[in-house]
């Protein structure tokens, strides 16, 4: 059992204190106990919950903000195609 297993090598990439933005998939570091957080990369805003003090996760979107951003993005894409 001296060789590293697949799981052990994959586990090396684990990070704490951050979540992956569910829009742009960038890793976002967030101050402990924050309840909402704007992704610095794409601007989408998330409600955050905490599994542990160093383990945030996205609870859900800030509905009105992300809905507006999504509408703008899809409208822009449509324009681009036309």
């Amino acid at each position: 059992m001296s060789e590293e297993t697949t799981s052990e090598s994959v586990a090396k990439g684990r990070t704490y204190g951050a979540f992956r933005c569910l829009n742009c998939f960038e890793r976002v570091t967030v101050p402990t106990r924050t309840k909402t957080h704007k992704c610095p990369h794409c601007g989408f805003e998330w409600r955050i919950s905490w599994i542990a003090p160093d383990f945030p996760r996205i609870r859900g979107p800030v509905w009105d903000v992300n809905r507006r951003l999504a509408e703008e993005a899809t409208a822009k894409e449509k324009d681009g195609r036309e």
Partner: peptide
């Protein structure tokens, strides 16, 4: 119809 831009349409 809904969701993040990646998922819409």
């Amino acid at each position: 119809k809904l969701g993040i831009p990646n998922i819409q349409g």
